[in-house]
Amino acid sequence: MTASASGAVTLTAAAHPGFLSPTGVEIAFVLVGLVTLGAALVTVTTKQLVHAALWLVVALGGLAVEYLLLTAEFIAWVQVLIYVGSVVVLLLFGLMLTRAPIGRSPDADSGNRLPALAVAIAAAAALVWVVVDAFRTTWIDLGTRQGSTDAVGAILFKHWVLPFEALSVLLLAALVGAIVLSRKGGTPESGKDPQASKDPQSGKSPESGKDGASGTTPGERDKEPR
């Protein structure tokens, strides 16, 4: 539905002279955009949790292609490297560690679905309306490449070096934070009871990751046979 709405928007926007004669880049952009949007929609609606992660790969990859079409090639490669390469892998690991069901799970959506749909559609309508109204006639000249690795590297280390260093501190902090949070023993007593009560209910083999420092490996071992 959202996809058709975007198509309609594209058609109405084509009334403008620029939209009547789409360039090749534009056609490619719209097509890849449709794929991306579709993948994103599947990501947020599918009942299979692992499929959602895989569709997210498609969506993020599509975005990388869009970056390329916008001549921001360095960003595109970074997108592929970090998002597709690491973030999605991390998410998949998370899914496994929390023992998400592999097949269709009927309760993937919470009871908040209808309000969420209403809010999302309202927000989309408002945003699309404003954006189209504002940038109907704006034209991007893609004649010169603007995001080459060369240019971005020069700019980054010439003008943005201080934020860049600050960002490294932030990443370090996030690293330490993640380690602290996932350490065993932070809440030893409260951790046992709900898990013990949950295990028979979900019908899975008992979790052995409660004890010892090798917290993650048994969980992974549990997952691997499936």
């Binding site: 975007s6 949007l37 699309v128 189209v132 991007i140």
Partner: peptide, 19 residues
């Protein structure tokens, strides 16, 4: 390329994520 394409795509993606 029209700016409206990436802008509209971004808006729709954002709302998808929102949902």
């Amino acid at each position: 390329m029209h700016l409206a394409y990436p802008a509209v795509l971004a808006a729709l993606l954002f709302c998808t994520g929102l949902y």
